[in-house]
């Protein structure tokens, strides 16, 4: 087959494929090449300043071996999983509740509330900690005033409850992701299913557990995967609010990688931590998909 005939025969496919080119080029430049560089740097002792910037050495797996003996790395790993797990549960439950509320026929004023629910998600993440700092102040903060009003003990949100505080900020800021995915999924369920259930006298819980939940299984898995993916490399709140403290209790892996690479300028080691984050995301996402039967 001559080239001309080949082009003629597959012209529509070629045109369609050409639409992918800009996205692929962007993906290559901004995702693939930096990823390859990151992996390469993780096998070197490259620094952002000093002689090691100009003359880095290939050190094989040394960064990874050092990481095994690095107590702060393991501490970061622990707090990252605590943060992800707590955020996953809170963001998902809040998102699901909001989605159920928005798709329910029982309530009014949903359009306005939908916009209010979305607000934290659309406000830039860098702003959130500033808002919350005044809320969480031990002496004058809104949260402790509410606790006092109910006769409860005020909490040290910035020090003793630092992890709870960042989880709270993250959950408040991010529950709308699950809300958006799940509300659109719930809306797409045919009404007939509920009408039949009503005829048979199904309770609200039975309708939710036997109809809604099974039919939104894949959106649920998708939202869980996306929330987890967002949280495991989360950076903004701990960077802005706690800077990893106190005593590394909020030093998430992403922040640890940042501190290593950009505060101490140990780029090679920071990249190695970044590679570990990527591997964790990859493995756990696969596991989540497998468990969900996707």
């Amino acid at each position: 087959m001559s080239l001309l005939r080949y082009l003629k025969r597959y012209s529509s496919e070629i045109i369609l494929a050409s639409f992918l080119v800009p996205a692929l080029v962007l993906l290559l430049i901004f995702q693939l090449i930096p990823t390859i560089w990151t992996i390469w740097f993780s096998f070197t002792d490259m620094a952002l300043i000093g002689k090691k910037l100009i003359h880095p050495s290939f050190i094989g797996l040394k960064n990874y071996v050092d990481m095994l003996n690095d107590s702060i790395f393991w501490q970061s790993m622990k707090v990252t999983f605590e943060y992800c797990l707590a955020s996953l549960v809170l963001r998902f439950i809040l998102g699901l509740l909001a989605a159920l509320y928005l798709t329910s026929k029982m309530f009014r004023g949903k359009t306005i509330l939908a916009a209010i629910f979305l607000l934290p998600y659309i406000i830039p993440g860098a702003i959130h900690p500033y808002v919350w700092i005044s809320m969480l102040d031990t002496r004058y903060g809104t949260l402790n005033r509410i606790l006092l009003f109910f006769g409860l003990t005020p909490q040290s949100w910035v020090y003793k409850r630092a992890m709870e505080s960042v989880v709270m900020i993250n959950s408040w800021a991010g529950y709308a992701l699950a809300m958006l995915i799940l509300s659109s999924a719930i809306t797409s369920i045919p009404k007939e299913f509920y009408e039949v259930a009503d005829i048979y006298g199904a309770s609200r819980w039975q309708k939710f557990s036997k109809i809604t939940l099974p039919l939104i299984k894949y959106p649920v898995i998708l939202s869980l995967v996306l929330i987890f993916k967002e949280d495991i490399d989360d950076f903004t709140y701990v960077y802005m609010f706690t800077e990893g403290g106190p005593h590394y209790r909020t030093e998430l892996l992403s922040l640890y990688a940042y501190h290593k690479a950009f505060a101490y300028f140990e780029l090679g080691y920071g990249c190695a931590v970044g590679v570990i984050i990527a591997i964790i995301v990859f493995v756990l996402t696969l596991a989540q998909l497998k468990l969900g039967g996707v």
């Binding site: 620094a47 952002l48 300043i49 000093g50 002689k51 910037l53 100009i54 300028f265």
Partner: peptide
């Protein structure tokens, strides 16, 4: 504080 590192890197 960045002077030594940048000098060592010839920057």
């Amino acid at each position: 504080s960045e002077i030594p590192g940048l000098v060592e890197a010839g920057m």
